[in-house]
Amino acid sequence: MSDAEIWSRHCDELIRYATVLVGPASAEDVVSTVVLRVLQRRTLSDLVDPRPYLFKGVLNEARSVARRNSHHMTAADDSVSPPDVDPEVLVAVRRLPPRQRAAVYLTYWRDLPMVETAQLMGCGVGTVKRYLHLARSHLREVLDER
């Protein structure tokens, strides 16, 4: 498979993943940085399994962005949320650290099984369980009212 085919297959889900992790303003930079880093050394088609490699790269880069910024999301994320979205839940999700947010997104929005979530995050299943537990704990105050 060529680099273009690999990119075409995964770019959309990578951008969406990055958007959830760092916000729309930085998502493209995060994904571009990860792919450029790969292309500096080899081609995408050299990767044995590009999808988990790129997902792990996006998460790592998102964590770097979070380290650089004292807040996790950019100002563009302060936009008005649609009526079906609880603003308190939205704020609580935005406050989650990147790895917890990644675990919640892959599990509760993408509906991925635990094993696949672990693979995309580059960690073990037990680690994913821990991040989910911590995330649910952080979200408890707003979600327990439901």
């Binding site: 273009a4 990055a18 958007t19 916000g23 949320s81 649609p82 609880d86 979600l143």
Partner: peptide, 23 residues
């Protein structure tokens, strides 16, 4: 209800994704 509220928030965050750059 909590799962639904969480999914709505996650879906909203994801929906803000820009168009991916072309390769």
């Amino acid at each position: 209800e909590a799962t639904r509220a969480l999914r709505s928030a996650l879906g909203h965050l994801e929906s803000q994704a820009p168009e991916p750059p072309q390769l």
